[in-house]
Design a protein around this nucleic acid. Structure first.
Lengths: 130, 130
DNA sequence: CTGCATCCTTTTCGATACTG
DNA sequence: CAGTATCGAAAAGGATGCAG
């Protein structure tokens, strides 16, 4: 079985295996929308339509798809009231809540350093005549 | 200017702006290979060819491209010895080092929880006859 | 409202060949 | 060895229409 080899390089880096499940999970989390949704749900359960309106630029297809993947991974839960019109809420599972803590740290890093990053990018893009 | 709105939702979630630079940075970091590279470089500077061999499944194109983006963002640095054949090393900048701390936490989460995630996925995929 | 299926466009990525 | 450019395959993503 493939244990997460991500951590196991102490100077002599073993190759990061291709079929390592960590990679897959990392991609799910690192996906374009996952972190954003996680952050939204941190405040509590939310209806689909509200999430859709809260994340500018996401399409319904991507939202449904991402939510489905997150649900499959046990990170979010889905509650459907048997109403008409339908009413569905998504919420963080305990597992998702533990992840959201880490996600928050990553986002905090971005908040703390994005000016520095943007500055670096601008400098990089400058065709320094000197 | 667009401040990182990622954090600024206290119950009443403002829409996550589309042009928010945080989003772009998050995507860079969340990219398929960035975290892996970051983790590799945590142990010290490394030559291009070694990185290439250490990350199974990455192509030279993607490696070059990712390294370029990371360098542009000021996260990694590049040192070129003026030798023939060429010899280039990449390393974490102080900015990159600070990020790698957070990245490590994310990876630690995956290591700690991936069994749980995989179990959830398996359960989800099971066409539960009951 | 929520979610799925279809079509079609855009983007991503790998393979290859080539320069310094 | 390190990096670039090009091309074609593959995947991602948006728009739309439809069902529950």
């Amino acid at each position: 079985m493939t244990t997460p080899e991500i951590m196991s390089n102490g100077g002599k880096p073993q190759p990061f295996s291709d079929q390592c499940p960590s990679r897959e999970i990392l991609e799910l989390i690192g996906g374009k929308w996952s972190l954003l949704i996680l952050c939204l749900l941190k405040s509590g359960p939310m209806r689909t339509s509200l999430i859709l309106r809260s994340i500018q630029g996401i399409s319904q297809k991507m939202l449904t798809q991402t939510l489905r993947d997150l649900k499959r991974a046990g990170i979010v839960g889905r509650r459907s009231y048997g109403e008409v019109p339908p009413r569905v809420e998504y919420y963080l599972t305990p597992l998702g809540a533990s992840l959201s803590v880490v996600a928050l740290q990553l986002e905090q890093w971005v908040v703390d350093h994005y000016e520095q990053v943007v500055a670096a990018q601008d400098l990089f893009d400058t065709p320094q005549t000197a």
